[in-house]
Design a binder for these strands. Structure first.
Lengths: 137, 137
DNA sequence: ACCATTTCGTACTAAAAAGTGCGTACCGAA
DNA sequence: TTCGGTACGCACTTTTTAGTACGAAATGGT
């Protein structure tokens, strides 16, 4: 059963949001940034996700051609997921979200001693760039 | 009744997505890009939205300090909504989403003669920049 | 013959988000 | 005194999304 989609988008932004908008998708995609991953690896590295949700989200990402699914004809099964070219281009979106989101969390919860709020899912090529952009407003 | 939020974000990207992730939020924010708008103006310009949803989404955006609500003490009531400074900084996120989403729609539905798919919700300061970025991959 | 391993499928349930419909306050004008 | 215009609030229903629980295939090793 493929995901229900809005019949109509008033603009491209909405289409993009729909693609990455699932509860687990950003986390899954983040894990794939460091290279292809097997189903089981993903399952272990995305804390709390059930197998059903993992499979479902991966299917949707595959359908949208964000990730590729490579099946090795072995037993027990081996399946690897990785970014497509189109998926790789989401990097700019991730960066923008990470920068704004980081500022947002500092503003909403400035005195939290909880370092969780500073976790960065996206690893910038240039870490200094993030630091700079993050604190200039 | 304020929106239920995830208790925990594994990273800032997720927090950001949560803020702009409502079904109508991108559209509403787009309308505000051209300046402050009254409740009624927004209602008329966002096709299909109900008053309940408009109010609800605006309340959430206000709570997250993305938009400001200015009440004029007149009868009948007059209320104006506009971006906060933090809200204005979402521009980078919008750009990234628009660029990627535009490519995505071309790829998913390339032969659609329907110009709807080309609607841009975000007006770039430099239109050429968009065109350039949109077609280079 | 039986078991372990890996990657799912699927019926069912629960929770969250969105949509419907109707009501309210305010005050000046007719 | 009733009416119009504006910006909502709220109870309820429907739709969508997420979670639970369990089952299945394939095959090499014991």
């Amino acid at each position: 059963m493929t995901k229900k989609r809005q019949a109509y988008y008033s603009c491209s932004m909405e289409a993009a949001l729909n693609v990455i908008g699932g509860k687990w998708k950003l986390t899954i995609l983040n894990r794939l940034l460091s290279g292809p991953k097997r189903y089981g690896e993903l399952h272990r590295s995305v804390a709390g996700i059930t197998e059903k949700m993992l499979t479902q989200q991966l299917r949707e990402l595959e359908e949208d051609q964000i990730v590729e699914r490579k099946i090795y004809p072995v037993v027990p099964p081996k399946v690897e997921y990785s970014f497509t070219e189109s998926g790789k281009r989401l990097t700019d979106v991730f960066k923008a979200l990470e920068i704004w989101g980081s500022n947002f969390q500092h503003r909403i919860n400035p005195i939290s001693g909880n370092a969780d709020h500073d976790k960065s899912c996206y690893t910038f090529k240039d870490e200094e760039q993030l630091a700079e952009l993050t604190h200039n407003a």
